[in-house]
């Protein structure tokens, strides 16, 4: 970073974003589908049981607050085992994932993520019995994490 001026960094970001836009569209969508298919194990996700707290409009796409709360008793025979966060228009759609175990685990968390552009953010939740739930929200970003600055 020391060798790059602020302006140069922005310009490079711009070229990188343009290159991605050309390559990406179909490739990334397929990639997201693969990741989700692997996570769900073929079970159709049902809407609900997970609360997704993310702003409708994100001012800073490099740091979008994301809150997740799963409705689960977290007992040994009924708990939420995995959470997957997908931003399907990001160059790498898999943002992050979480694993929980019954006993000490509480499926509640907040973090901050990057969004390349305005898109849907989807959270998939897997229960110990293999059932999958999801919640999706559309987020508008005013400047993307990969877009040219200002």
């Amino acid at each position: 970073m020391n060798t790059l001026s602020r302006r140069q960094t922005f310009v490079l970001f711009g070229w990188a974003a343009a290159a991605f836009a050309l390559l990406r569209s179909s490739h990334v969508a397929a990639q997201a589908n693969d990741i989700v298919a692997e996570f769900t194990g073929g079970k159709p996700p049902v809407a609900g049981r997970v609360e997704l707290d993310i702003p409708f409009t994100a001012d800073n796409a490099n740091s979008v607050p994301l809150g997740i709360k799963v409705d689960s008793p977290m007992t040994a025979d009924n708990y939420c085992s995995e959470v997957l966060v997908i931003a399907d228009k990001n160059p790498r759609p898999k943002v992050c994932s979480f694993k929980f175990e019954p006993g000490l685990g509480v499926p509640y968390l907040t973090t901050r993520i990057r969004l390349a552009e305005s898109q849907n953010v989807t959270v998939f939740v897997k229960m110990n019995d293999g059932s999958v739930f999801m919640t999706r929200k559309a987020v508008t970003v005013t400047s993307g994490a990969c877009a040219p600055g200002g």
Partner: peptide
């Protein structure tokens, strides 16, 4: 356990 990708800030 949190598995992070490049999409985390």
């Amino acid at each position: 356990v949190w598995t992070l990708g490049t999409g985390v800030s």
